[in-house]
Every structure is written in structure tokens, then in C-alpha cells.
């Protein structure tokens, strides 16, 4: 096929040609073009002609793979192994798409190992001896190293944007790498949602590196919901940087993600359907969020909102002489 035709049918082929120091004539075929590259240029490139042809074919094949839609993931099952002392972990837990599961436990208890077992699709070959099933079946071994179909996306408090791009350029790039159709709609969806979560608005031409903590987190969540191919989202705390965490989690659930959240913030933890308690390397308890816990969540949220209002008052230069009645009611008599 001629270079021009290929570029028209498969625009991403541009990425292959753009790294070469010579620009192809659209009227010649790809093989003619690659055969015509001078030896000296090839030496500089560090590649041979035959190798380039092979690479081109492999490149196109891989890019086609990215576009391929895989079977949606409906559930993940964790079958227990043993704890750090070798005691059995008596667990068989199935998590379904659209569910939020919280993971609690002290530092060093094995939260990260559990998340790593899921990411690695452990088959009794990690220190915990756990088994992970996907859609009730043992997953294909090749999944482990697949970049296109990576099972797990991660969000943590330590993550920052490092690319020197504006919000829209950044999303454009991510969308292109995922080869999504109708890029513009997806981008505007992501930005609208992120802005709704963040409270403080940002525009499409803000550089991603100058977003505030809350704005960054909001954009990361919206971007993961719409643009990440990974069906499982691991969240390591979401700081309360003035973002609407409930709506943010709801978007992930709406997009049928399986959300696993390591958190010790009661407001986040009680938003989950279930809580896994990790102790000494194993899941020692599975708690289902009870009705009274949900009622308490409403109270905690109100309290949190009041604290947020105090923070906002501070932000906008108001005095904090007076606190809301309910906040004083808790402590007032004793403190004053």
C-alpha cells in the first residue's frame, strides 16, 4: 500500500514515520520507501532495513490490538492463601463491576500486597499464595504483561502531573493513545466532570502542572473513568482538598469500574459496599456496610461539610469568631 493511503486509513502510522529522519513520499509504497533509506541514515538510526520493515508490520499489528475491545470484566474473585505466619486465609471473595470495596489495616499489614496480587493476577505464585480469578475463570497468562489491557489503574495522593501540556492537549494525547472514537466529546466530558468535582474551575488551556491539588485529583479521576482501559481502579486515599469525593466515586461506579480503595477516612470508607480488614498479611474480616453505619455517614458528612465551610471562610478572608452550633455542641461546654 502507498504511504499516503496508509496514513489516510490508519492515521497513527504517522507516529512510525515521524521518528524517521527522512519523510516518505506519499506516492511510494512503504516497502519502497524503507528500502530506499540510505545506509548512513540507518546506521544513525540504529536499525537495518529488514528490521524496519518487520518493525513497521509489528507496529501496525500492535496498534490494531489497542483498538480491539476485550471481553468486559464483570467480576474478580480473590481466593485466600496464607498469612505471614503460614495460617490459612479462609476467604473466597467475588467483587463485581460497579462495586466499591475498601481496604483497611495498619501499615505493613499487607494492603499493598493484596493490591499487587490483584494487579499481577496471582496464581499461588506470590508470597501470599492467593489465587485471582477474572469472570470466574483463571485468566490468560499473557494478560500479566499486556500493556493494552492492563487490569489495574492506580490513583494515589503522591501522584502528580509532570507533562508540560495544557489540559486539553494532555487529554487529546491520552485519548489518541487509546484510539478512542469521537475524541472531542470524550474530552469535554472529562473536563466537565473534573470541574464539577473540583469546585474551583479550571480552563482547557491551563497547564496540567499548575492545577491545584484538588483540581489535579479531580482531573485524574475523571480521566481514569473515561479514558483508562483498566477495569479495576485502585485508590490510595483521596485527600479532602475541597473535591466532591462522593460524585467522583460515583462516576467511576457508573463507568462500571471495580473500585478498590485503601483508606482510613471514615467518610470514604463508609461509601464502600464492603470493607476488607487486613491483618498480618491476610484478609481477616470482611465487613458489609450496615444501615446504622450509613446513617452515621450522613452525620459525619455534615460535620465534614461544616469544617469545609470553616476552611472556605478562612480562604475568603472572613473571621472565624463564630463556629456552627453543632460543632460547638460537641465540645463547647468542656473546652470553654
Amino acid at each position: 500500500m502507498r504511504v499516503g493511503q496508509i496514513l489516510k486509513l490508519y492515521p497513527y502510522a504517522e507516529d512510525f514515520f515521524s521518528v524517521l529522519p527522512v519523510t516518505p513520499n506519499p506516492k511510494v509504497t512503504v516497502t519502497e520507501f524503507l528500502l530506499g533509506i540510505e545506509d548512513e541514515v540507518l546506521q544513525d538510526l540504529g536499525q537495518g532495513t529488514e528490521d524496519l520493515i518487520k518493525r513497521f508490520n509489528e507496529f501496525m499489528r500492535q496498534m490494531e490490538q489497542v483498538k480491539k475491545v476485550v471481553d468486559p470484566i464483570r467480576s474478580i474473585t480473590i481466593i485466600g492463601g496464607q498469612d505471614k505466619c503460614g495460617n490459612a486465609e479462609d476467604v473466597c471473595l467475588t467483587i463485581r463491576a460497579g462495586e466499591i470495596i475498601c481496604i483497611v489495616g495498619p501499615t505493613g499489614s499487607g494492603k499493598s500486597r493484596l493490591l499487587a496480587d490483584i494487579e499481577w493476577l496471582a496464581q499461588r505464585d506470590t508470597p501470599t499464595g492467593r489465587n485471582i480469578l477474572v469472570n470466574d475463570r483463571i485468566p490468560d497468562a499473557e494478560w500479566r504483561y499486556s500493556t493494552q489491557h492492563k487490569l489495574v489503574a492506580q490513583l494515589s495522593q503522591n501522584m502528580n502531573f509532570v507533562m508540560d501540556l495544557t489540559v486539553s492537549e494532555f487529554l487529546q494525547m491520552h485519548a489518541e493513545s487509546r484510539m478512542v472514537q469521537d475524541i472531542d466529546t470524550v474530552i469535554s466530558n472529562v473536563i466537565n466532570h473534573a470541574n464539577r468535582f473540583a469546585g474551583e474551575q479550571f480552563s482547557t488551556d491551563t497547564p496540567v502542572t499548575s492545577l491545584s491539588g484538588g483540581q489535579s485529583r479531580a482531573l485524574m479521576i475523571a480521566d481514569t473513568a473515561y479514558l483508562s482501559a483498566s477495569p479495576v481502579v485502585l485508590i490510595d486515599e483521596i485527600e479532602n482538598a475541597g473535591i466532591d469525593r462522593q460524585s467522583a466515586l460515583k462516576l467511576l461506579v457508573d463507568k462500571q469500574k471495580i473500585v478498590l480503595m485503601a483508606t482510613h477516612d471514615p467518610i470514604l470508607a463508609l461509601m464502600g459496599n464492603r470493607r476488607l480488614v487486613i491483618n498480618n498479611g491476610k484478609i481477616s474480616k470482611i465487613l458489609t456496610t450496615t444501615d446504622s453505619e450509613r446513617r452515621n455517614l450522613t452525620i459525619l458528612e455534615k460535620l465534614d461539610q461544616q469544617l469545609t465551610n470553616v476552611r472556605n471562610a478562612l480562604r475568603y478572608g472572613e473571621s472565624i469568631d463564630r463556629l456552627p452550633e453543632t460543632l460547638i455542641g460537641l465540645w463547647g461546654e468542656k473546652v470553654i
Binding site: 502528580n160 502531573f161 509532570v162 491520552h174 493513545s177 482501559a229
Partner: peptide
């Protein structure tokens, strides 16, 4: 320390 999106784009570029 980088965002999920940047990780995905970077891995995609490595794949290319």
C-alpha cells in the same frame, strides 16, 4: 509519582 494517564501514554510510546 505520575498520573495514571501519563503512565498509560508513556507505556504506549514505549510500545510504539
Amino acid at each position: 509519582i505520575v498520573s495514571q494517564a501519563e503512565r498509560e501514554v508513556f507505556a504506549f510510546k514505549v510500545r510504539q
